[in-house]
Amino acid sequence: MFRTRITDLFGIEYPLIQGGMRYVSCAELVAAVANAGGLGFLSAHSFPTPEALRAEIEKTRSLTEKPFGVNLTILPKLSVKPEDSARVILDARVKCVETAGGNPASFIAAFKEAGIKVLHKCTGVRFALKAEQLGADAISMTGFEAAGHPGEDNVPNLVLIPAAVDRLRIPVVANGGFTDGRGLVAALALGADGVAMGTRFLMTRESPMPEAVKARYLAATERDTTLICSSIGDSTRVLKNTLTDQILELERRGTASHEDLMAMASSLRWVQAAERGDPDDGAYAAGIGVGLIHEIPTCRELVQKIVTESRAIVGSRLNAIVG
């Protein structure tokens, strides 16, 4: 068993977190992560109605008795308002929430009053300090390596995590580029209390991502992700494919409007492409760590491999170096 402030805070066995991912973070995946000893988060904005989110929470409970949470993305144009999703989370008495996106102030206050633990996901130390001030229980620091939205500061985790740990009192989770035991040990050495993994958990058997798309991820190297939409201040790390090449060319030329770029890069488009099993017609979020993924295990196999690797690194290699 690993014991850190994160395992104590959330009542989990290992400091391994599966962050909320649209479309991917379903009951089967989240429960599998929980049953393996980690912490999984459903993605509230994957569901078309508050009732659908409520049903997925209950389905997850039917699959695991261990802790799990819900990711609440705070953005103004979601199909279901964050306030409505928050009410479901409160009514369902979910134990923990991962907040992300916009200002979490009112949500953190409501969750804290209900005794819900809050992990706030952010891209900069200044945002983390504000979340700590607002009452967040822990911070998930998203580095430049991460899939999706890594922010506009372009600071990698090798610097970002120590910078956050030096200034925060609450636990820090390292997010971005982590796939194995080497990454977990490195994050702990940098001062983090755990790691969050998106792309790595996407590439498990319990993940609903279609096999044709998983095959594209599996073939990728560390050079096969790119940042799109940086020209409009909305940098998003995605897997390189035909569509992302087109987006980058339009950005280079400056010939596409903000609305055109957002439509091409939208989650709606990539979800529709995924449902068709098309790996080229969607901007699929992918972290740089995709280049370290060479198989598609079950969540239990993945967690146990990471734990075994971590123990071997600490117990033999590092001891041999400094002993």
Rank of each mutant, 00 (worst) to 15 (best):
6 I>D: 04
9 L>F: 08
11 G>M: 02
15 P>C: 08
20 G>E: 00
21 M>R: 05
22 R>I: 10
24 V>H: 07
26 C>I: 08
27 A>G: 09
29 L>Y: 04
30 V>T: 10
31 A>F: 01
31 A>S: 04
32 A>R: 06
39 L>D: 06
51 E>Y: 09
52 A>M: 06
61 R>W: 02
64 T>K: 05
64 T>Q: 08
64 T>F: 03
68 F>L: 03
69 G>A: 07
70 V>N: 08
75 L>R: 15
75 L>W: 06
75 L>D: 08
78 L>C: 06
79 S>C: 12
81 K>R: 13
89 I>P: 01
95 K>L: 10
100 A>V: 00
108 I>G: 02
108 I>C: 08
111 F>W: 14
115 G>Q: 15
120 H>C: 08
121 K>N: 02
122 C>A: 02
125 V>T: 10
131 A>E: 03
137 D>P: 06
141 M>R: 06
144 F>W: 12
145 E>G: 00
146 A>S: 09
149 H>I: 09
153 D>E: 13
157 N>Y: 06
157 N>F: 03
157 N>T: 12
159 V>C: 11
160 L>Y: 05
163 A>Q: 07
164 A>P: 01
169 R>M: 09
171 P>I: 02
172 V>T: 04
175 N>G: 00
178 F>T: 02
178 F>Q: 01
179 T>A: 15
184 L>S: 04
186 A>S: 14
193 D>E: 15
199 T>R: 08
199 T>H: 09
199 T>L: 06
209 M>A: 15
210 P>L: 04
210 P>D: 10
212 A>W: 01
216 R>V: 06
218 L>C: 07
218 L>M: 12
219 A>P: 00
220 A>D: 02
223 R>E: 09
226 T>F: 09
227 L>V: 15
230 S>N: 14
236 T>N: 13
238 V>Y: 05
239 L>I: 00
241 N>V: 05
243 L>H: 10
244 T>Y: 00
247 I>Y: 01
251 E>A: 07
251 E>T: 13
253 R>T: 14
254 G>F: 03
256 A>F: 03
257 S>D: 07
258 H>Q: 14
259 E>D: 12
263 A>S: 02
266 S>D: 03
266 S>A: 03
269 R>E: 06
269 R>G: 04
276 R>T: 03
276 R>F: 14
277 G>A: 15
278 D>L: 03
284 Y>G: 02
285 A>I: 02
287 G>S: 10
293 I>N: 09
299 C>Y: 08
304 Q>Y: 09
306 I>P: 00
307 V>H: 03
316 S>I: 13
319 N>G: 15
320 A>C: 11
322 V>K: 13
